[in-house]
Simulated assay, not measured.
Amino acid sequence: MAGKRMQIKKPYIAAIIAAAGSAARMNGLDKQFEEIDGVPVLVRSMLALSDSDWVDELVVVVRQRDIPDLYALIRAYAVPKVRSVVVGGETRQQSVRNGVAAVSEETQYIAVHDGARPFVTQQVIADTVLDGVRYAAAAAAVPVVDTIKLADADGKIISTPDRNRLFAVQTPQVFEIGSYREASEEAQKVGKDYTDDCQMLEAIGKPVYLSRGDSSNLKITTPADLIFAQAIAMELEERNGFQNRAWL
């Protein structure tokens, strides 16, 4: 994990919320618009990023058919800082690329966040931004708690990696915009399509550092995750004693 913080001047940061996925594992449910304690998943994600003092603007990437519904939600929940809503591509990498193309000219760093991670905390956002600015690339992550096995195509165990060096990567992931664009252009040129933005930077030799994530920063991927999310929402409300905008 990244270490001691340093004093920095706040740069201009655009958050890109990726919400154009097909939700293939949701059994027909549209996870971005499913409600957690009465509030859509995507709204929670947008409010968490927009409420951060580190984030200056939001670009939300969705499917074409979802644009009218998204604008309605932005108005209904008075989500601030939304610069634009853009149509996603066929893959996550293409969708984020579309989002990057829509940020303001003064943008110095981008914070890429999954629309399906509704419980990202202000602390995680701040920590990842600080590390991203310090190192030019950083991603929220948590230590892996299970023992991981590497197997071959037949399912036979090949090796057991050291768990102390394994981390589950979350979002936000924060990048200096010039480095990100360089990595994105190179990936497009060589025909590579990555499922994780960090991989693009790694592929061109740019180091990416891990910042402190949080176990509550759950990504909604399956219907069962919605049940866990409801429990998290209830716990957060009980813990805070009031309804914070980010949790509603």
Rank of each mutant, 00 (worst) to 15 (best):
P223G: 03
P68S: 00
W247N: 12
I110Q: 05
G3V: 12
A101N: 02
A111S: 15
A139I: 10
G3F: 11
N244P: 15
V208K: 06
K149N: 12
A76R: 11
M1Y: 13
Q94N: 12
R245T: 13
N164D: 08
A168R: 15
L248H: 15
T147G: 12
V96H: 00
F167Q: 05
A231S: 09
P80A: 08
E235M: 11
P118N: 02
T107A: 10
R5V: 08
M6L: 09
A14G: 14
K156A: 11
V41I: 04
N217F: 04
L42F: 03
R181M: 10
Q108G: 11
P68R: 00
K4F: 07
L73W: 04
V79I: 15
I36Y: 06
G155E: 06
D127I: 04
K81N: 06
A151P: 02
I227P: 05
D152S: 01
S95K: 05
G3R: 14
T221L: 02
I74W: 06
A183L: 10
A102R: 00
A141W: 12
D152K: 11
T171C: 02
R212S: 11
I16S: 01
A246Y: 08
V59H: 01
Y71K: 03
S104V: 04
A233G: 00
S45A: 06
Y180D: 03
L29V: 10
E185K: 12
L58P: 08
A139V: 15
R25D: 08
D225Y: 07
G99A: 03
L47S: 03
D197K: 00
K31G: 01
M26A: 12
S184P: 08
I16R: 03
N164C: 05
R83Q: 05
A19L: 05
S211Y: 10
Q123E: 14
Q123R: 07
L210K: 12
A116N: 10
A126W: 00
D154E: 14
D114L: 00
V169H: 09
L130F: 13
P11D: 00
A137M: 10
G88R: 04
K81M: 10
A14R: 10
R25I: 06
A48G: 05
L236C: 02
G191S: 02
Y71Q: 07
F242I: 02
F175L: 00
S184M: 07
D51F: 11
R92V: 08
M6V: 14
A140I: 06
V120K: 00
E57H: 14
K192D: 13
D197C: 03
N98R: 11
A2I: 12
K31W: 01
G89Y: 09
